[in-house]
Amino acid sequence: MTPLQFFGEGLPYIEPFDCPGLLITIEGTDGVGRTTQVALLREWLEVQGFGVIETGWTRSQLIGRTISQAKEGRLLNPLTYSLLYAADFADRLEKEIIPALRSGFVVLADRYVFTAIARDVARGLDRQWVRDLFGFAPVPHLVLYLKIDIVELIRRVIPRGVIDYFESGMDLGLGADPYDSFKKYQTMLLREYQKMADEFGFHVVNARWKPERIHMRLREIVTEFIRQRKFSEWGRVAPSGPDEPKSPGGLFTRSAG
């Protein structure tokens, strides 16, 4: 077992602990089928005897409603938007994710801090500031990125009929036309995801594939990771084994000091 690693300073008031669990995050924009893939992965893992807990990217008990209300009233600026989501994530992290990891669960996170970083950078915030903000977040063991191109994204999302105000970045003043704004905003998100995919070693899967094919590819990636890490049975890691998870050290460059 290895201790959980963090992007930055972590949570200094929590004693370091061995992490028998596994943190798998699924990233991607709207319309890539994340929800379907999470459900399929969960079923597959449970069949094999792993305990699985799912978590999404919003709405903790503490802050969820505040975010909804603030969004409704359009009271948020990019900074408060970013900080509120960070607070919401911190709440779920400390109350759901970390306890689950400590007890040996596989945590499937439908979106993770990378989504927040992509959105915040698209909203004009300093990239390093946003990354520093999430210095308290654990580095996932696996990041599964369902990658799509803007053309296919538009083909899938637009027919749904309603373009969400924030999902189309209308708050950014990219233009009065929701379609143009959506396209510009999602293009910025895709660019930011790609930057992180390269930098942080995301496992990239083509989201144009059929759901079954994507699922089989995700199985391969997870199986390979578990094999390497000897994460064998429910909540247990084989005691021996030299392989450490790929060191993520320095992913989020820390300032000297």
Binding site: L11, Y13, L62, I63, A86, A90, D91, E94, F136
Partner: peptide, 9 residues
């Protein structure tokens, strides 16, 4: 129900 981090944020 606040943790140091959520309190801070």
């Amino acid at each position: 129900s606040l943790t140091p981090t959520t309190f801070s944020l």
